[in-house]
Design a binder for these strands. Sequence first.
DNA 1: CGGCGCGGCGCG
DNA 2: AAAGCGCGCCGCGCCG
Length: 564
Amino acid sequence: MWSEADAICLGVDRGDRVVAAAFRRADPTGLVELGRRPLASGEVAAWVGRRESEAHAAGRHIRWVWSSTATWYPRLLDAGVRVERCTDLRLCRAILSSALDDALPPLPVWDAPHEEPAPAALFDVVPDGAARAEEIDETAAEYARQERVAVSSGLRLLLAAESAGSLAAAEMTSAGLPWNRGGHEQILVSELGERTAAGRPRLIEERAREVRAALDDETASLDSQPKLLRALHRAGVAAESTSKWELAEHDHPAIAPLLDYKRMMRLYTANGWGWLDEWVVDGRFRPTYVVGGVVTGRWASSGGGALQIPRLLRPAVRADPGWAIVDADVAQLEPRVLAAMAHDRAMAAAAAGRDLYDGVVSAGVAATRSEAKYAVLGALYGSTTGDAARLMPRLRRAFPRAVGLTDDAALAGERGERVSTMLGRTSPAPGPRWEAMQQRANASAADERSARSAARERGRFTRNFVVQGTAAEWALAWMADLRTRLAAFPPSEVPAPRSGPAFARRPHLAFFLHDEVIVHAPADQAEAAAEAVRESAARAGRLLFGEFPIDFPLDIRIGPSAAE
DNA sequence: CGGCGCGGCGCG
DNA sequence: AAAGCGCGCCGCGCCG
């Protein structure tokens, strides 16, 4: 039975025992259940690992179907078991309910996000009702419902990519990003000074004293926005806010040390010694990724600020002895995605080669690279003022299809319509408050202005949604292909001492940030891993855009650390 | 005391 | 100069 299964559902029975159900996908009849088997406590991970290796040896793949990867997979990884494919029913349901609005009945069990790892007990000792994974019957039924409604090839690809992403996310948390505490501390000390016994680091205290002296106000509060603003006003600085952009425009001796103070405080509070103590354990930073956490399909993160690590700290990302960091990011991902999805050959030609913005300059749209960049970003974000807006007519003449696509998405959003990405992830419908505001538009001039402003705001969102969301799909496809390629590498002689057992001997994904991946690789396999990164990027481009001539050039750095 | 909104700023 | 999209986290200050 198990050797014929294409998919195996995992759920629990009434006694919180794990149950596996085997399925086969037969074309005319759909999904056929082949049978079930309860798994004894403590045997789950080993049993899954055995099915996975048998399938692998037979040249087949099993799709593991479960309520949520975040619930089930960490325990398997803890036990050293990696799986190749899965279906994350919660993530897939979120996509399907939005895309096919009445196709799936609302079911609270499946609609609520649930991101807690399963209790360890589920995988060893059966507790008294402590485990809360989903019932096997409910899991199997939901799987069948989703299989029935997900018929378009784009959506099926998206569901597979989203689920593969959920595996990659759990694997990256398990493997961890190699993080050198000493290197991080060195950066902190050189930027902030040594930690003092009583309170903040030396240079922060020093800078605070300079600011207060320049303001001639020994008690000025620098950390409270309203108090600081009043102190600035008393000193003759007529700033309306304390943001660094505005402060930089004022001329006063307190400004320079104040900006430096703010910069240092940011580093100290967000990524200082406290962050190190909390988030770097045993030489690894293990962030929690929230797959599909952004409506566009981008990932979010929770805890540790994984997606906001300052560039300044990149040198602290350091490979284990005998290993290397392969750090790859895509140059101008979003405009390339736009050119391809709009089938804009002129823009694709400008994108050919390394730098898209240089290409836009060559196309005669802008005089300088930075001007070109702001013009293109203006099309993606919906600039209405400044240089970007001024350049828009020329950009539209040069790249009518690309700019037309973003304009159409904006107009659809302004009308209250929904838009969708290349593979079919749909933007949320406007809320009742937005609709009501549009209804009120002719009540008064003020109502009309606010309706118009809300409509424009939504237009900017939908404009960006189609591009940001499709770029997220490209990145998922890139990562999904890459994790499979890396898993096929031969095991290395040199283990990475602190990576989870499933990854300690092969190059593996260690970090992901929208358009960047970091691979931790045995040093002698680093070049081959970098080549895999390139091949996967090319493959992702073909998967989404077929033979349309668009390339996705990568900046790849190989070295002992992720320093620039 | 904890929860929440805000200003501010890090990342893409 | 910052703008126009998407996030998470910090400290502050207010509220219950």
